[in-house]
C-alpha cells in the first residue's frame, strides 16, 4: 500500500526499558496528502509522537517508515533572530543564498508576509512569526508537514486566520499533515481524520466525512465534537467526565 507514514508497534520510554511507556505500541498509517489531527490532553505524548515522525528522536522499540521530505512547525517559532525573515525561510535549502532567495520570497508571499521579508524576526508579531515558520516549512515542499500546536499561543482572531491559511496551503500543496492540537474544533475544521492519544495509545481514530469549508454550527460537526470530547474525558461544559461520574 502507498502509505507515506507507517508506524508499527512503536513505543517510547524515557526512563529505562522497564518504565511506563509514553507511547505504547502505536500503529499508525498516513496516506499521501491526508490531513490528520492528533488530539490529547497535555502530557499525553503528542509532542513525543510528532518528534518521532519528524525523525528527531531515535526509534528504539517498533518500526517507523517516514518520507524523505519532512518539515516541522513548532509551537514556538524557533526563528534565528540574527537572520532576516527571508534568510530564515531559505535556511538549509540547497544552493547559494542568492539562488534560494526567489523560493523564499515566493513562500513568504503565500503566507502573506512578502512585505516583511527583510524584517528581523524579533520585530514580528506572534502570528507573523508562525507564518514565517509555515513558509519555512512549505518552501521545502514537504511530503509530510508536522504542526505541533502552532496556533496555541496566538490570540483568538489570529488563530482563526492561521487555521484557514493552513487549510488553503494544504489544499494548494497537498502534503500529508499531522496537526497536533488540544482544540477539538480546530481538528474538526481542518482534518480528514482525527486521532486521540491517551495513556500512550491511540484510543480514537475517527474519519471526518464533512464537506469543506466546514461550519461549526452543522449538526454532524457537533456530534463528532461531543464524541471526541468524550474520548478526551471531558464533558460539554469542560468538566472532567471521570470525576463527575
Amino acid at each position: 500500500m502507498n502509505a507515506i507514514v507507517e508506524l508499527r508497534a512503536l513505543s517510547r520510554r524515557f526512563h529505562g526499558p522497564a518504565s511506563q511507556p509514553v507511547l505504547d505500541r502505536i500503529d499508525l498509517t498516513i496516506a499521501p496528502g491526508e490531513f490528520v489531527a492528533l488530539l490529547g490532553r497535555s502530557g499525553s505524548g503528542k509532542t513525543t509522537l510528532l518528534r518521532t515522525l519528524a525523525g528527531l528522536d531515535p526509534v528504539t522499540e517498533g518500526k517507523a517508515r517516514l518520507p524523505q521530505r519532512r518539515a516541522v512547525v513548532f509551537q514556538e517559532p524557533r526563528l534565528l533572530p540574527w537572520k532576516p525573515v527571508w534568510e530564515n525561510v531559505a535556511l538549509g535549502l540547497p544552493g547559494s543564498l542568492g539562488a534560494t532567495r526567489g523560493h523564499a520570497l515566493r513562500a513568504l508571499r503565500e503566507v502573506e508576509l512578502a512585505h516583511r521579508a527583510q524584517a528581523w524576526p524579533l520585530t514580528l508579531s506572534g502570528g507573523e512569526a508562525q507564518r514565517t515558520g509555515l513558509a519555512r516549512a512549505l518552501v521545502r515542499d514537504p511530503e509530510l508537514l508536522l504542526l505541533d500546536e502552532p496556533f496555541a499561543s496566538l490570540d483568538a482572531l489570529t488563530r482563526l486566520r492561521m487555521q484557514s491559511l493552513v487549510g488553503e496551503l494544504w489544499q494548494a500543496h497537498q502534503p500529508a499533515v499531522l496537526l497536533v492540537t488540544h482544540d477539538v474544533e480546530e481538528a474538526l475544521l481542518l482534518a480528514d481524520r482525527v486521532l486521540v492519544l491517551a495513556q500512550g495509545r491511540l484510543i480514537e481514530d475517527v474519519s471526518v466525512p464533512l464537506p469543506r469549508p466546514r461550519r461549526r454550527a452543522a449538526a454532524d460537526f457537533d456530534a463528532l465534537r461531543l464524541r471526541l470530547l468524550g474520548a478526551l474525558g471531558v464533558d460539554e461544559d469542560g468538566n472532567d467526565a471521570a470525576k463527575a461520574a
Binding site: 528527531l56 516541522v72 514556538e76 524557533r78 540574527w82 537572520k83 535556511l91 519555512r136 521545502r140
Partner: peptide
C-alpha cells in the same frame, strides 16, 4: 538547543549549524 534542533530538521549539517546558529548565537 531548540534552535539547534530546528536547524537539524531544516537539514543543516554540523558545520552549517556552527556557522548559522552557534557562532552568531555566541557572538
Amino acid at each position: 538547543p531548540k534552535l539547534l534542533e530546528a536547524g537539524r530538521i531544516l537539514g543543516l549539517n554540523r558545520a552549517e549549524q556552527i556557522r548559522h546558529i552557534i557562532l552568531p548565537g555566541a557572538l
